[in-house]
Simulated scan of single mutants.
Amino acid sequence: MPAARPPTPDPLPLVALADRCVQCGLCLPACPTYGRDRLEAESPRGRIALARALALATIPPTGVADTHLDHCLGCRSCEAVCPAGVDYGALLVAARSRQRQRRPPPWRQRLIEALARRPRLLGAALGLYRLAHPALPVAWRPLPQPPARPRTAPGAPARVPEARAAVFVGCVAGAYERPLREALARLAGAAGLALDTPAGQGCCGALHAHAGDPAGAAALAAANRAAFAGHATVLTLASGCHESVARSVAGVRDALEVLAERGERLRFRPTAQRVALHLPCSQRNLSRSAPALRRLLARVPQLQVVELDAGYGCCGASGSQMLTDPARAADFRAPLLEQFASSGATVLLSANIGCRLHLAGGTALPVRHPLEFLAEHLDEERPA
């Protein structure tokens, strides 16, 4: 009798996802990591083949293979050009989930995930970080200083509300995006939209899913689903959170798109200022709100907009990668900052919080959400 074969690990659904890839290579020019390293294993096609081989146990897991999977930025630019419709985002989550089962994540990643799951603890930690930031050595300041809590509440809406919407805050945005939420309230009020911020919400879970922890992401999704129950419209401010929130909560819209639809109600003061516009991967490939943002900025008379397109197609923030692999993340950021510095722009606008924090860490010029800039130039005295 022949010897019994050892059980083969169940390769589904990863192999089913991988088998949609026809290995055409059209994804290679769109991939930031392939553009930087020019290695097949640093391309979507290479990672798909690698993940499939690991799932089928045709090659043994190695540190080199893990590094190639770790390097993926999850930008999903490959999906935008794939003729076979490969769901690379789902494949990457599946591959990293299997990877996490046999190799625990680094301590920094575990710490980041733990803080993101606990909004109060994260808020307290960032409060202490804000106070200590000026005295810390540069090496101990991986993120910009969080803004101080405003002393005055935002003004009343300029219009009688015609509709209501809830606002998704997220995790790190709780401390970093207070000025942005005030700006959104001003713009929404002028556009006839009242806002609610439901209690009980938290991290969208993208951070955990991309690190191979779908169970943790599902738990966070359930909490957000409960927090937003009963709200017909939920606005997101961070393009990196949009897809995860939309998968778990009904009625999710990008705030930029909602305001652009009500753009006729908004009037802005003229400014001859030149601004640099960074379009995050998640905005271009997932929330797809870049056209809405361009329409809103076009409503500001005399404004000059320079879109940043230098480098590899991604700023390198990639969720937690800017903290777990800062040197590599800085390589992706450098061409964008060089273009920004030579553009003559006085401010850099980006619609994703991770990108803004990462870009702000490499320049002394202001890096802001586009809605903050628009709210500053809102002409509330002129009727629409």
Results as ranks from 00 to 15, higher is better:
Ala49Cys: 09
Leu303Thr: 04
Ala65Lys: 03
Arg181Leu: 10
Ala49Asn: 14
Arg288Ala: 02
Glu243Ala: 15
Leu91Arg: 01
Gly170Pro: 00
Cys204Arg: 01
Arg130Ile: 11
Ala158His: 13
Ala18His: 05
Arg76Ala: 11
Val169Ser: 06
His210Glu: 03
Ala375Thr: 04
Tyr312Gly: 02
Gly85Tyr: 00
Ala209Asn: 00
Pro335His: 10
Ala290Leu: 04
Gly316Lys: 04
Glu162Lys: 10
Val258Met: 14
Ala41Asn: 12
Ser289Leu: 06
Arg253Lys: 06
Arg102Phe: 04
Leu143Gln: 05
Ala250Thr: 11
Val167Ile: 11
Asp66Cys: 02
Asp10Pro: 05
Glu177Thr: 13
Leu184Ile: 14
Asp196Ala: 12
Ala215Ser: 09
Leu17Tyr: 03
Pro106Gln: 12
Val245Pro: 05
Glu113Leu: 15
Gly240Lys: 11
Val138Arg: 15
Gly212Lys: 02
Leu277Trp: 13
Ala148Tyr: 00
Asp309Ala: 15
Leu39Asn: 13
Leu122Arg: 07
Leu286Lys: 08
His242Thr: 13
Gly46Ala: 06
Gly216Ile: 06
Ala163Ile: 10
Pro13Met: 04
Ala84Lys: 04
Ala183Pro: 01
Pro270Asn: 02
Cys203Leu: 03
Asp325Cys: 08
Val169Arg: 07
Arg96Asn: 08
Arg186Met: 13
Ala255Val: 12
Arg382His: 05
Gln99Phe: 03
Ala80Glu: 08
Val252Gly: 10
Ala384Asn: 08
Ala166Lys: 07
Glu182Ser: 14
Ala298Tyr: 08
Cys355Met: 05
Glu381Arg: 12
Arg20Asn: 07
Val167Tyr: 05
Arg333Ile: 06
Ser248Phe: 12
Leu195Ser: 03
Pro198Gly: 13
Ser342Asn: 11
Ala229Cys: 11
Arg356Pro: 08
Ala246Glu: 07
Leu73Met: 07
Arg151Ile: 09
Gly230Arg: 14
Pro301Tyr: 01
Gly189Cys: 10
Arg328Asn: 10
Ala90Asn: 05
Arg288Trp: 00
Gly35Asn: 14
Gly202Trp: 06
Trp107Gln: 15
Leu259Glu: 09
Asp70Cys: 01
Gly202Pro: 13
Arg130Val: 10
Ala173Arg: 10
Cys314Pro: 02
Phe168Asp: 01
Cys31Pro: 02
Gly311Trp: 07
Arg274Leu: 03
Arg117Ile: 06
Val22Asn: 08
Ala190Met: 12
Gly174Thr: 12
Arg102Lys: 11
Ala226Gly: 12
Leu54Ala: 04
Arg299Leu: 06
Ala272Trp: 00
Asp196Cys: 01
Cys27His: 03
Gly316Val: 06
Ser43Thr: 11
Ala41Val: 15
Glu79Lys: 04
Arg267Met: 02
Phe228Glu: 10
Tyr88Val: 00
Gly174Glu: 15
Gly212Leu: 06
Gly123Tyr: 06
Cys171Phe: 13
Ser287Pro: 08
Val367Asp: 03
Ser239Asn: 11
Gly202Arg: 07
Pro11Trp: 09
Ala209Asp: 02
Leu69Asn: 01
Glu372Cys: 04
Gly216Asp: 05
Cys78His: 08
Thr67Lys: 04
Leu56Asn: 01
Gly362His: 13
Arg103Gly: 11
Ala310Ile: 10
Ala272Tyr: 00
Gly25Ile: 00
Pro105Leu: 15
Arg151Glu: 14
Leu323Thr: 09
Leu54Arg: 07
Gly85Arg: 00
Ala246Gln: 10
Ser244Asp: 14
Cys314Ile: 00
Gly85Ser: 05
Ala206Arg: 11
Ala188Tyr: 09
Val275Trp: 07
Tyr312Asn: 02
